[in-house]
Design a protein around this nucleic acid. Structure first.
Ligand SMILES: NC(=O)c1ccc[n+]([C@@H]2O[C@H](COP(=O)([O-])OP(=O)(O)OC[C@H]3O[C@@H](n4cnc5c(N)ncnc54)[C@H](O)[C@@H]3O)[C@@H](O)[C@H]2O)c1
Ligand SMILES: NC(=O)c1ccc[n+]([C@@H]2O[C@H](COP(=O)([O-])OP(=O)(O)OC[C@H]3O[C@@H](n4cnc5c(N)ncnc54)[C@H](O)[C@@H]3O)[C@@H](O)[C@H]2O)c1
Lengths: 281, 281
DNA sequence: ATGTCTTTGTGAACGCGTGCACAAAGATGG
DNA sequence: CCATCTTTGTGCACGCGTTCACAAAGACAT
């Protein structure tokens, strides 16, 4: 998940909670799908299922936008699509620049989902002189010397950074100085920006590490359970039916549906008994 | 940020809060930087600044791992690097498969940051027969017919999905059936998985929409302020002319009241004054 | 040994987000 | 017009996450 705003301790922006804002695009996507299939109305229950959220949460989210539903019927799909689009600012055109046209930057430039919702790739910028003029996804790459002019000429307020980590902060500073007030950062660095500028980051490495944490925990629990259950013979399974032997540690607590997990941890490795490289004092 | 776990209402995994787990990679990155510069110890204040978080939060995060600091001194960098790595499961090897080797998948395969921390690209999988055998980032692409065998042979438990949206759920199902229990999804779809399987998603489109929301809000506020202050000269909040002609309808309603529905959008503009395609009844 | 100074670890308060549960609103049928 | 049935909108309670603030722990100097 690309998470992480910077600064702004959850300022209830115009009355709409941040968590709600983050879900609106999800609803919008589900609604667009319904719209294409000409479904006229949808209930909170159905839409919530399509978006993968709780229906009460969805209703509360919509309540922040106003009362757009009809009791006993549900929500008018087209109308809701319009309202959410307007709320998110998608009824206007957002020129975007991508800085750093390498592997990732090029993939982003080629991404069709960009233009689909009000976003338009206004320019591609790279520091490599050899790339200047070369077209990527039909758009000629421009040299970063012209960054300020490009931002100004196109009225760009959203910038995407796909440069190496070391270049990210300097590029960010230039973008901000040139007038950009929203940045989507793919480089693995913490960007520092002045107040009034929003930064969101997408960090593949962090996502994988979070998954690894849970994966390790799952494997650990499985082993614990397995050993407790007396040297289960199912030692080196990997494929077997995933949650088949689900052992739910029955954590006891009532509310949280828990959801631990069983399942085979992939690597049945044994070599993890490493020792701290350095002791603390 | 790539956000979004699926299911699991924040089950305090092994006592470590989910929010803390999500920050550990951030700390680890900062610590690695210090380690490379041979800094022996670091205070919570310094490290927190480097990671872009509050120092109290950082100390509380570390307290979940144990008492690894020394009062009056700070934390031993090397020791902390090891502890966090171990906690995240990075001391072991995690074979990963990438499914869908298109623009994005190829960029991911080429991503160096992958191997840096215990993650190893075990295989690249694509449904296009024309791609089979072709090397991408030095690794030959394999056909998706062999998906199950590849997962099993390599003991893969983490899968990355970079296929078109339509193929994501079927691919996900096959991965899970084959034994994968953690999935990082780049396709713009809500994946449904059985209990015990973790899904995280990276959704560029959602990130942009969230930025657009705030961008619109900023523009609206700037105008409000400007008008209220009567052509005040302090217009240069950050980016002066950015989207200067937007006119947020300033819905006025306080919290919840939900009352003032009417008030038709205040955009007196000509061109962008779209009208709801359908009214709600 | 004692005092001072730095920094950790955490108790406690607070606010946000979530989900339950239900009254009210409105559709639908007779 | 009334009864019934569906579904919204939201009051409320609860738990997680964040932050403040401070006592305790230990380093270091004298
Ligand atoms: N490739 C991925 O899948 C992936 C995944 C996650 C994160 N990332 C991160 O995204 C960033 C880009 O990754 P990549 O694989 O595309 O790298 P890359 O080396 O292929 O591309 C980087 C590009 O940035 C350009 N560049 C360098 N300095 C610049 C500057 N100051 N101004 C403008 N352009 C500049 C380079 O000329 C190059 O074209 C890196 O920070 C990487 O860590 C990449
Ligand atoms: N390119 C981006 O920057 C970007 C950004 C955000 C999200 N995405 C999403 O990532 C996904 C991939 O984007 P892309 O630009 O690389 O698309 P792409 O069309 O270039 O690549 C898709 C690849 O998936 C393969 N594929 C299709 N069905 C498959 C199946 N059933 N099993 C295995 N492989 C299959 C195709 O052969 C193709 O090689 C899309 O869902 C897209 O929306 C892409």
């Amino acid at each position: 998940m690309a998470t992480g705003r910077t600064h702004r301790p959850a300022t209830r922006s115009r009355g709409i909670p941040e968590a709600t804002v983050a879900r609106l695009p999800l609803y919008l996507r589900a609604l667009t799908g319904l719209s294409e299939r000409s479904v006229p109305t949808v209930s909170s229950e159905e839409l919530a299922a399509a978006a993968g959220v709780n229906s009460a949460k969805l209703r509360k989210d919509f309540s922040y936008l106003g009362s757009y539903g009809t009791r006993g019927v549900g929500y008018d799909v087209e109308y809701l699509v319009y309202q959410i689009s307007r709320e998110l600012g998608l009824t206007q055109d957002w020129p975007v620049v991508i800085v750093g046209i390498g592997n990732l930057g090029a993939a982003l430039a080629n991404y069709g989902g960009f233009a689909s919702r009000g976003f338009r790739v206004a320019a591609l910028i790279d520091a490599d002189p050899a790339m200047a003029g070369k077209p990527v996804a039909g758009i000629p790459v421009q040299h970063s010397d012209d960054l300020e002019r490009i931002i100004a000429d196109n009225g760009v307020s959203i910038g995407v950074i796909a440069t190496p980590a070391g270049a990210a902060q300097p590029v960010c500073d230039r973008l901000v100085a040139a007038g950009v007030t929203s940045i989507l950062n793919f480089a693995p660095t913490v960007l520092t920006v002045p107040d009034g500028v929003d930064v969101r980051k997408v960090d593949l490495s962090i996502e994988l590490q979070i998954l690894a944490f849970h994966e390790q925990r799952k494997a650990g629990e499985a082993i614990e359970a397995g050993e407790a259950a007396e040297a289960a013979a199912e030692a080196d399974v990997v494929a077997v039916a995933v949650a088949a032997k689900r052992r739910a540690p029955a954590d006891g607590s009532g509310s949280g549906s828990a959801g631990g997990s069983g399942s085979s941890g992939g690597n049945g490795k044994g070599s993890d008994g490493d020792v701290p490289a350095v002791m603390p004092a």
